[in-house]
Design a protein around this nucleic acid. Structure first.
Length: 418
DNA sequence: TGACGTCAAGATCCG
DNA sequence: CGGATCTTGACGTCA
């Protein structure tokens, strides 16, 4: 079982994807952006390999306007060396990647121009995975689209358009239930007709369960029947509702208690779980550490080094509690560890604890920093105490210092994420 | 016609 | 001038 995350890791410098507005999308601009984005993707893949994250979704915006007629660049050839290098890293590390066109790619539409655009978009996604020289276990996840007042007719249109796609494309396609129109029952019906695998999305299902009320495990086992040997492991999407936002909004982090219940009920290891969550890679590592059978306290120590300042700035008591927990080396330390982290990160940073944490962070910068920079730091702290500057401004300052003096342990930490 | 979701670009404001 | 903060864009569907 692999647990993965989508598109952009948080707290990893140099992994952001660039874009531009349509009116600025010249050939030169697009070529520059593609080069930058491939560098960013390679950094992300490197990060995944180092952190043993073996499931990842490549963002559709990797090639700006990739499926639009404004982008006529032969980018597969132009960037072949970078693309092949990235593909080899994915392949050699045993990573599995996917792509996911959004809700705007609708093969069920009654409008011919929308269908043409959707097919263009699918071709773009397929071209990208082909250009990385990746096989058919690296999937493209597709929604069905709208219902246009008649779901049966829309399903028939979807099936018709899908059947006409070429085989190479069809071998990559997998279908997903959505939170509005197509329940998992609907999508399975289509999947069986088209002989395409189905991805079960837990949160979409919770919001749009359809008529046939069954639990997650039942549907996951139904979906399993749609996955053939050549498709690789069955994939599912797992996410949790943000309690303060609209139904369907992904939570800030995966609440580990809920996830572990889900995992235990699943009683299966031959499933890949793609998380959809705001804190991305952080939750992927969290879930991985909590389900891994080996009592690898090393991984937990590494995590603590990354979380510690974010916790310290909220609560010295939480900080000490975690220190004691890790010292005890108990059997289910990982779950207890993340439970405390989750509660602690909900607290706002208090003024004194924030200043305390900022000083600790400064400790690793002060040897490199100039006298002027030290003065600037102390002035900012003073201003913060007097309400003349914000916590975020001080963190941004510390971040720039960490970049300038290449303090990788600080840059790799989650201090700047929260 | 605007909400929906997403997130960087672009625009504007501030010191 | 640099940095922080607000607004716009790009996609299709649905109310």
């Amino acid at each position: 079982m692999s647990v993965g995350y989508a598109c952009l890791p948080v707290g990893v410098p140099g992994t952001g994807l660039r874009s531009c507005m349509l009116k600025n999308a010249s050939e030169a601009k697009l070529a520059e952006l593609i080069a930058l984005n491939l560098e960013a993707l390679e950094h992300t893949i490197d990060y995944n390999i180092i952190n043993e994250i073996s499931l990842f979704r490549i963002g559709s915006n990797l090639i700006p306007f990739g499926s639009s007629p404004v982008n006529t660049l032969p980018w597969e050839e132009m960037f072949a060396p970078q693309l092949h290098r990235i593909g080899r890293k994915i392949q050699n590390s045993g990573m599995r990647v996917s792509m996911h066109p959004g809700h705007y790619t609708a093969l069920s539409s009654p409008r011919a121009e929308v269908i043409a655009g959707a097919i263009e978009d699918l071709h773009y996604h397929n071209r990208l995975l082909d250009s990385l020289k990746l096989g058919r276990v690296h999937k493209i996840v597709l929604h069905i689209g709208g219902t246009y007042g008649d779901k049966r007719k829309a399903m028939d249109r979807f099936i018709g358009h899908c059947e006409r796609l070429d085989d190479a494309m069809k071998h990559r396609l997998v279908l997903e239930n959505d939170e509005r129109s197509y329940s998992i029952g609907d999508v399975l019906e289509i999947g069986f007709i088209l002989n395409l695998p189905v991805v079960f999305d837990t949160l979409h299902h919770a919001i749009n369960p359809g008529n046939n009320r069954n639990n997650d495990v039942y549907w996951i086992n139904q979906c399993r029947k749609t996955w053939c040997a050549g498709d690789g492991k069955q994939k599912i999407h797992y996410s949790q509702q943000d309690p303060l936002k609209q139904p369907g909004s992904h939570s800030a982090t995966i609440r580990i208690g809920e996830f572990m219940n889900f995992y235990k009920n699943l009683e299966r290891e031959d499933v890949d779980i793609m998380l959809e969550v705001k804190d991305k890679n952080l939750s992927a590592i969290k879930c991985r550490n909590c389900i891994s059978l080996a009592e690898d306290t090393g991984a937990l120590e590494l995590e603590w080094r990354k979380y510690r300042y974010a916790i310290l700035e909220r609560s010295a008591a939480d900080y000490q509690e975690i220190q004691r927990l890790l010292h005890r080396k108990s059997e289910d330390a990982a779950i207890s560890f993340y439970r405390i982290i989750e509660v602690s990160l909900q607290r706002p940073a208090g003024m004194e604890s924030f200043v305390d944490a900022a000083h600790h962070v400064w400790e690793s910068l002060k040897e490199s920093a100039s006298v002027r920079e030290k003065e600037r730091f102390l002035k900012r702290i003073q201003d913060y105490r007097q309400g003349k500057t914000t916590l975020r401004a001080i963190k941004n300052f510390l971040y720039r210092m960490a970049v300038k003096y290449r303090q990788s342990s600080l840059l790799d930490s989650y201090y700047f994420v929260f």
